[in-house]
Design a protein around this nucleic acid. Structure first.
Length: 358
DNA sequence: AAGCCGGGGCG
DNA sequence: CGCCCAGGCTT
């Protein structure tokens, strides 16, 4: 007997489906991306919702769709403008991959989001979860869509103690989800699982008293819902110190720098950052001249700022500086007025410094 | 399989 | 401050 069969043995699948779907229809939140089933809008919402809370996504989704209502609008947009629209949402590769994939949809599929699992899944930024979400929600196909919510719900309902941080666990939960999914209403089933995870079957203190599938939940029956899911914790981030330079010239314009096209915060803009470990606080002006070809004078320290990423911590020491330059030769740099700062996409850490300038 | 890639909210 | 979280890509 296969492992999948053992876990699902004696499980009342159709009763579970009915209870979940009925609850979903009665309790689903009225969210902007649920106004219709436009595959493009479903896609945009699912990308934004990756690792991101609903409340955070709502205003971004509205602005994004009003700016780029159709795949073609997004495909032909300038990437810097797309990043500006994404500014503050984080994981900016999502925006770059989404636009890249949409361009492929326009070029290869006449602007229509493919409903073929292989075609859809091969698009940039669409992994197993997003593929299943789009196929089930927009095209009503019975495909599993296993995210963190679904793994949490299933780990409790089926009492599975696999470490959900591992890839192998996600694959296992996908086979369970594929077996459990309603073929009558795959969209409501998948969205119901995620809605249940968000509203009832929460990470801590799940509200089992209000749970529509309490009768079918093995963890609840045994009182172990608090101990599930099992998830190994990530290790601590590395702390990296930088000196940030808020450089102004005589006209009060600022020097800003475009980050590399790859890696952390790719193609975003920032106030120049000097890696303190490599350069040392005493050689910053020299180094800046060597690196960028302009002369600066470091002035007073304005403060410290700690910014935490998933696996990295920036320890920022912020200095005011001046330069006599009015133009730059280095391609990474620009000198712009304070008002023009609003036109460039900055990560949140640098937006905080910008706020401080006003 | 493990590392890389943001940000906000919570207690 | 540590902890949590609607993933996917690269190596």
């Amino acid at each position: 007997m296969r492992m999948t069969d053992k876990v699902l043995q004696n499980f009342n699948t159709s009763a579970f489906q009915n209870a979940l779907i009925e609850w979903y229809h009665a309790n689903k939140r009225d969210l902007p991306w649920r106004a219709d089933q436009d595959p493009y809008k479903v896609w945009v919402s699912e990308i934004m919702l990756q690792q991101t809370k609903v409340d955070t996504v709502i205003p971004y989704f509205k602005q994004f769709i009003s700016k780029y209502p159709t795949p073609r609008d997004l495909a032909y947009a300038d990437q810097q403008e797309v990043l500006k629209t994404w500014e503050g949402l984080g994981y900016y590769s999502r925006a770059r991959n989404l636009q890249h994939a949409i361009q492929e949809v326009v070029a290869s599929y006449d602007g229509k989001v493919p409903d073929d699992p292989n075609e859809l899944g091969s698009l940039k930024g669409i992994g197993p979860y997003t593929k299943g979400a789009i196929l089930s929600i927009a095209y009503n196909q019975p495909q599993p869509a296993v995210d963190g919510n679904v793994m949490r719900v299933l780990s409790r309902v089926l009492k599975v103690d696999d470490d959900i941080a591992k890839t192998s666990a996600r694959k296992k939960f996908e086979t369970y989800a594929a077996s459990l999914i309603s073929h009558d209403d795959p969209s409501s089933f998948n969205q119901g699982m995620m809605e249940l995870g968000a509203l009832i079957c929460t990470p801590k203190e799940p509200m089992c008293m209000f749970c529509p599938v309490q009768d079918y939940c093995r963890a609840f029956q045994e009182g172990v819902q608090q101990a599930l899911p099992v998830k190994s914790k990530q290790k601590k981030q590395k702390v990296v110190p930088y000196t940030v330079l808020l450089i102004q010239n005589d006209k009060g314009h600022y020097v800003i720098e475009k980050r590399p096209a790859d890696g952390l915060l790719a193609n975003m803009w920032q106030f120049p950052m000097v890696p303190t470990v490599e350069i040392g606080n005493d050689h910053i002006e020299q180094w800046f001249h060597m690196e960028y070809g302009i002369d600066i004078t470091k002035k007073v320290k304005k403060g410290n700022l700690k910014h935490v990423f998933t696996h990295l911590v920036w320890q920022l020491e912020i200095y005011e500086a001046t330069t006599a330059s009015t133009k730059v030769t280095d391609e990474r740099l620009k000198i712009i007025s304070r008002d023009e700062l609003d036109e460039y996409p900055f990560p949140v850490s640098h937006q905080k410094m910008m706020k401080y300038l006003r």
